[in-house]
């Protein structure tokens, strides 16, 4: 079995995996980072979204072995201790989550969506979230949360 080395949430990790292992299963099963979820099998729902080298990637759609040497951030790596990332905080403040299942992917996508951009309109945010499905919230409060999270990140609270 090939050996995969990567940096996940700032920690160097290494493991032998079957070549067919998807990144999401490497994270969930090998590293026990179960915050990243699997909601579909066609790369449509975005529940498995993580950051690979700073960009949002659907981790069900990449093999772990493809990402040897990559820097990966999952939902578990966002908060600083008990201090939430501004985007996480914005989701909590705006009731941008209900069952919480799509939430990790939604937050990871949202951060990538707003990074380096200012004053995104509602329609830009909605279009930018097109790859993440939520069945609970009707997106109303997610859109509000992303806007608020973007503003907070712009205000310098972001990382």
């Amino acid at each position: 079995m090939p050996t995969v080395k990567m940096t996940v949430n700032g920690k160097a990790v290494s493991a032998d995996v079957e070549a067919r292992t998807l990144l999401v299963h490497f994270l969930r099963d090998t590293l026990e980072l179960t915050g990243t979820h699997v909601g579909c099998d066609t790369a449509q729902c975005g529940a498995c979204t993580v950051h690979v080298n700073g960009k949002a990637v659907k981790s069900c759609n990449a093999l772990a072995v493809q990402l040897d040497g990559a820097q990966v951030t999952t939902i578990e790596g966002l908060a600083n201790g008990d201090t939430l990332h501004p985007m996480q905080e914005a989701f909590r403040d705006n009731h941008g989550l209900q069952c919480g299942f799509c939430t990790p992917g939604m937050v990871m996508s949202a951060i990538d969506l707003v990074q380096g951009k200012s004053n995104l309109s509602e329609s830009e945010i909605r279009a930018g979230l097109e790859g993440n499905i939520c069945r609970c919230t009707g997106y109303h409060n997610i859109v509000k949360a992303v806007k608020a999270g973007a503003d907070a990140m712009q205000a310098g609270k972001g990382r």
């Binding site: 179960t34 979820h37 939902i75 908060a79 939430l84 989701f91 909590r92 989550l97 299942f101």
Partner: peptide, 17 residues
């Protein structure tokens, strides 16, 4: 604000899988 949200937002929810 919801009591549930901290665990869901930090990936600490425990779903069956």
């Amino acid at each position: 604000k919801r009591k549930e949200d901290f665990r869901f937002l930090t990936g600490r929810g425990t779903y069956t899988d």
